[in-house]
């Protein structure tokens, strides 16, 4: 029997984790640079800017989530490895792409927005609630992509 199906599925899981994780690390990195600058000036803002820095970190987690669901669906995590046709393997690969690609791009831009929001916190710490909203707006699209990825992966017949 052809093993190609499982290879495609694994490639999908890898892409979801890899791209979304890369996006988050870029984003958290950008925000972290801004956060460090603020803490140099005023260490008491540490908690607030740390929260801001973590905001772009969620894409990586969404990627992990889709990757995990995919692995458990095809039975790579213990149990019987499913006999996938190349077609359903490719379907799973396609299902993993939204969170991978959107996670990569939104992670980067959410990081930039977080860095700007950290600027708000630096100057007006009482506006934390509003500052937090701007990065959260970017995240919406990662959540939508996550949703489609989850729905697609769970509903593909294996």
């Amino acid at each position: 029997m052809s093993q190609l199906g499982i290879v495609y599925a694994l490639l999908g899981a890898a892409l979801a984790v890899l791209l979304a994780g890369a996006g988050s690390s870029i984003g958290v990195g950008i925000a972290g640079q801004a956060a460090s600058g603020v803490v140099t000036e005023d260490p008491s803002k540490f908690a607030k800017v740390l929260i801001m820095q973590l905001l772009p970190g969620t894409q990586g987690i969404y990627g992990l989530l889709v990757g995990f669901i995919t692995l458990s669906k095809v039975g790579l995590l213990g149990g019987q490895v499913a006999a996938l046709t190349p077609q359903s393997g490719l379907m799973i690969l396609a299902a993993c792409l939204p969170i991978g690609i959107v996670g990569l791009i939104s992670g980067k831009y959410q990081g930039k927005t977080s860095a700007a929001a950290i600027g708000i916190v630096a100057k007006k710490p009482d506006q934390f609630g509003k500052a937090m909203l701007f990065p959260a707006m970017v995240e919406t699209y990662a959540i939508l992509a996550l949703l489609i990825s989850i729905l697609a992966v769970t509903n593909i017949p294996v």
């Binding site: 609630g129 937090m132 909203l133 959260a136 995240e139 919406t140």
Partner: peptide, 8 residues
Amino acid sequence: VHTNRLQF
């Protein structure tokens, strides 16, 4: 964060 967002 996201509860705040839904409210705000």
